[in-house]
């Protein structure tokens, strides 16, 4: 089981802030592909990966990063702090 978190407009497009998912995805990109196949809302949210960032267990990562051992995956738009 993996905990998936969504923030900002991604959270709004998908319609929930977090969910637990049973997945065999090997990488972040594989997980994205699985999610995008669910329905139009997910497909739309993940349509353009260049506009998204991902963190694995609270650390920024790349979309080709492996998911083995990861407990929490967070997807979000580019950050706007400061």
């Amino acid at each position: 089981m993996i905990e998936i978190l969504y923030f900002a407009w991604l959270r709004e497009k998908i319609g929930l802030p977090r969910e637990r998912v049973e997945t065999g995805a090997a990488t972040v990109a594989d997980l994205v592909q699985e999610l995008a196949l669910r329905d139009d809302a997910y497909a739309l949210a993940f349509a353009d990966l260049t506009s998204l960032r991902v963190a694995l267990d609270q650390e920024l990562a790349d979309f080709d990063a492996p998911l083995a051992g990861v407990r929490e995956v967070a997807f979000f738009p580019p950050m706007t702090g400061g």
Binding site: F7, A8, W9, A55, L60, A74, F76, P77, P78, M79, T80, G81, G82
Partner: peptide, 27 residues
């Protein structure tokens, strides 16, 4: 902090609400 700390801003105006986009210049 601008582009590597996980914050997102949503701007509310009389016309509605909009997420503030990150700027290429920040990156």
């Amino acid at each position: 902090l601008k582009s590597r700390a996980p914050f997102w801003k949503k701007a509310f105006t009389a016309g509605g609400a909009e997420w503030v986009a990150a700027k290429a210049s920040d990156e």
